[in-house]
């Protein structure tokens, strides 16, 4: 397979850290499923292209990737299937792109979710990140567009942020390849359980909702003791999400989250 990228920092790096093998769309067999989530316009597709060697073009305007794109790559002897979710600002509305993203995170049960965040407007990106942390445990944050952030005079303490969020945070610039190697190392560490994430779960104790939540969470936890995200499920029920309600009714919401080596994705 020919290497499609222009020469840059990430290509052919030190073998000690493993080799990135771009697999394009050939992902017939994989060891881990990785979801790529993030706000629109954060360079999510650039990262996707860099990892898989595919060339999905998306321009500099919001909401371009609407279909779910899939590709694959190999790293450190394992094969990863990468699912590029539509760029969204949130996970809570009924819009088609948010529904696709939310349902994949909830029911597709990826082994890992990489949140691509724009380092130049972190606040807005944390809004989505906090919601993703409500849904799923295994998350790595790719703090993308670091080159832009530097040009804007923005300094980010990634270590502190990692501590606050309880997940690995990797500064990178997908466009030039800066930090992509470090990202792969962290991704591997999380899927192989060498790094354990302790996701920061924001307490959703909004006035008038807390009591209802408490009742529902208690019931949910009683019926599904394994449920890792009871609060979020309770919230979705209160928001009238019928897809979640159906999974609660038929009991399938309670399956454990990890299912490595089980290629049972729709």
């Amino acid at each position: 397979m020919s290497d499609a990228c222009p020469p840059s920092a990430c290509d052919g790096c030190r073998a000690a850290r493993g080799e990135l093998e771009r697999l394009g769309i050939s992902v017939a067999r994989w060891d881990y499923v990785v979801a790529l989530a993030g706000n629109p316009n954060t360079g999510k597709s650039t990262l996707f292209n860099r990892l898989t060697g595919l060339r999905q073009h998306t321009g500099n305007w919001p909401g371009k990737t609407i279909a779910r794109a899939e590709g694959g790559f190999g790293y450190g002897g394992s094969r990863y299937k990468l699912v590029d979710l539509p760029g969204t600002y949130s996970l809570r509305s009924a819009s088609p792109d948010e529904t696709v993203a939310r349902e994949f995170l909830l029911f597709g049960r990826p082994d890992l979710t990489v949140v691509v965040a724009d380092a130049t407007s972190l606040e807005r990106n944390l809004n989505l990140t906090l919601q993703i942390l409500q849904v799923t445990d295994r998350v790595v944050m790719a703090l993308n567009l670091m080159d832009e952030a530097r040009a804007h005079g923005i300094l980010i303490d990634a270590r502190r942020m990692a501590g606050d969020l309880g997940i690995p945070v990797v500064p990178c610039a997908a466009r030039s390849g800066e930090g992509v190697e470090d990202l792969l190392v962290e991704m591997e560490a999380v899927v192989t359980n060498r790094t354990t994430t302790r996701p920061y779960r924001l307490k959703l104790d909004v006035p008038g909702v807390a009591a209802a939540m408490e009742q529902l969470v208690a019931k949910l936890e009683k019926r599904f003791p394994q449920l890792p995200n009871a609060e979020w499920i309770a919230l979705r029920l209160l928001e009238g999400d019928r897809a979640v309600a159906a999974k609660v009714a038929d009991g399938s919401i309670g399956f454990s989250q990890t299912n490595s080596l089980a290629p049972n994705l729709a």
């Binding site: 972190l122 606040e123 807005r124 944390l126 809004n127 990140t129 906090l130 923005i154 300094l155 980010i156 303490d157 990634a158 502190r160 942020m161 606050d164 969020l165 924001l202």
Partner: peptide
Amino acid sequence: ESSRLAERSVA
């Protein structure tokens, strides 16, 4: 919360 977290690590 996002705002609080961002303030802690962004300068």
